[in-house]
């Protein structure tokens, strides 16, 4: 594992702890999009089905289990939060889920000549999870643009997700050059996803960094 991948993973891990800290210490899920969190849970469940059939490393296994468990817990907390003002969580997620599913059925890494149907279904779900992750942040971005007072911790959560994406891009450049590792589906979707965070970083710069006490 190279340093870019590791920093990306740690930033991703930090994003979970930031969101959990916000939910637990402020006892409020205001500003957190339930739709985005439910999409992330879907992403992790669909992508990490290989937990059952392929062992890569203890690092991978534990991170995958943590990502699924933590996102399930976050969805539970946000969904059951009585003080959640979800009036601005209005993104039409069917416009994300259905195109991602259709695209995954046509553009994927299946090899029907080898492997059973279940392995190929897992490939379709893997591609679906990649496409869905690329756009899953959009409901959260829409909320941030609509809400006046987004708490800084929600913004830091988004920033750590953006850093995670950026370091994964560096990781792919490194791996392509040194290992010949190349998953075009993941890379193209990863570039799209990172570009979406560029929009967020402009907002982050304006609303958080410019507001820092001098």
């Amino acid at each position: 594992m190279n340093i870019f991948r590791f920093v990306g993973d740690m930033s991703h891990l930090a994003s979970f702890f930031l969101l959990l800290a916000k939910l637990i210490y402020t006892k409020s899920s205001t500003g957190v999009s339930l739709k985005t969190q439910a999409l992330y849970l879907t992403v992790f469940v669909c992508r990490y089905l290989d937990l059952l059939v392929a062992f890569v490393s203890w690092y991978n296994e534990l991170m995958k289990i943590f990502f699924i468990a933590a996102s399930a817990y976050i969805v539970y907390v946000v969904a059951t939060s009585t003080r959640n003002s979800n009036a601005s969580d209005t993104y039409r997620v069917e416009f994300l889920v259905i195109p991602a599913l259709v695209l995954a059925c046509f553009v994927n890494e299946t090899h029907w000549s080898k492997g059973g149907w279940s392995l190929n279904v897992m490939e379709i779900l893997w591609a679906f999870s990649i496409y869905l992750e690329a756009v899953a942040v959009l409901p959260q971005l829409k909320m941030l643009h609509q809400l006046e007072d987004t708490t800084n911790i929600t913004m830091h959560y988004m920033a750590s997700l953006g850093i995670y994406r950026a370091f994964y891009l560096l990781n792919w450049v490194y791996r392509l050059y040194y290992e010949g590792y190349w998953h075009p589906i993941a890379v193209v979707a990863g570039i799209v996803q990172t570009l979406l965070y560029a929009d967020f970083f402009i907002l982050y710069y304006q609303s958080v960094l410019l507001r820092l006490p001098s």
Binding site: D9, D50, S57, M63, W126, E179, G180, W182, H183, A186
Partner: peptide, 10 residues
């Protein structure tokens, strides 16, 4: 090792 590399990322 160019095609069908194992998916060892998160």
């Amino acid at each position: 090792a160019s095609k069908a590399a194992a998916k060892d990322e998160l």
